[in-house]
Design a protein around this nucleic acid. Structure first.
Lengths: 156, 156
DNA sequence: ATATCTGCAAAGACTTTGCATGAGA
DNA sequence: TCTCATGCAAAGTCTTTGCAGATAT
């Protein structure tokens, strides 16, 4: 099935097939929604976006698909402390998109940052190596978040 | 009220008073429970521990107190992905206890580690400084977690 | 053809809120 | 004394589960 742009088959199809999962309209649509935003979407957000495209796709399927994508490593699930999970496409096929978060504990605003990532990667690689060995732990990903007051909340 | 050991008044009393909050039996008990464990307690865990000491303290109070402690910065709230929040006393009066987590995405086990903390602190200080300036963000704390498969789950 | 996936409705789990009573400063 | 804190019960919110019908391979 062509998808309406000329960029060839979506790179994630192989990941589905390889995992023994079927490609379906809902899954295709959900990944597309995630790939076209840089925002931190909740399950409800994804559902609403998806619903505009195929109004028959249900919230349950969104939850189940997001869960699947997280297990497959295609999507990261974040907790910013407001009681609902947020989802982001992890990094594309070759590590672009890598970033971390600044979370404002007053208003809940979340800022993505990509500064200092290189230094972090360096440190994290070392740390991962050390930890893997010491705890015999097979590390697959990491999470870094900073908390504090954002620009707007500082002033109040 | 003496507390049964000879170490003087609990260091956190001032933090309560300074914030305009009252010292009460439930609050005292809850902080005590947290300070006597190195485990990652859920609200229910805290409730059960507290309940053994003062069986009249309710779960609601535990939730409200934990929330308050988090706001005061005395307690960190963590999400390990199993649907319930975990709480830990943040660091004591002078930064001891500082550690991060290794979370097994298969079985949910959480390992504390204190290795590499010095290197991390170094990097994080720099990062914090840079981010504070660039985004005019007043950073108060950070979170680092690694994810993967633990010893036991590796073998399966 | 058939094992997987989906949607709806209902259930489940954790957390928060309302309100009258009780306690700290 | 007077405001703040507590406890119980009920409600709220996000997320998961059961099951029959639909779908991908």
């Amino acid at each position: 099935m062509p998808r309406g742009n000329g960029t060839g088959p979506p790179w994630w199809h192989g990941r589905f097939r390889g995992g023994g999962y079927r490609m379906t309209i809902p899954r295709e649509t959900i990944v597309n929604v995630l790939s076209k935003t840089s925002k931190h979407l909740s399950a409800e957000d994804v559902y609403m976006a998806v619903h505009k495209i195929h109004s028959n796709i249900g919230l349950t399927t969104v939850y189940r698909t997001l869960e699947l994508l997280v297990q497959m490593g295609l999507v990261f699930k974040f907790d910013f402390g407001d009681g609902r999970a947020r989802y982001e496409l992890s990094e594309g096929p070759k590590g672009e998109r890598h970033h971390h978060h600044l979370v404002c504990t007053s208003c809940g605003r979340v800022i993505d940052y990509t500064d200092f990532i290189d230094e972090e990667i360096e440190l994290l690689n070392q740390t991962e190596k050390g930890l893997s060995k010491k705890y015999n732990f097979n590390i697959t990903s990491h999470l870094i978040q900073f908390y504090g007051q954002c620009n707007g909340c500082n002033l109040k």
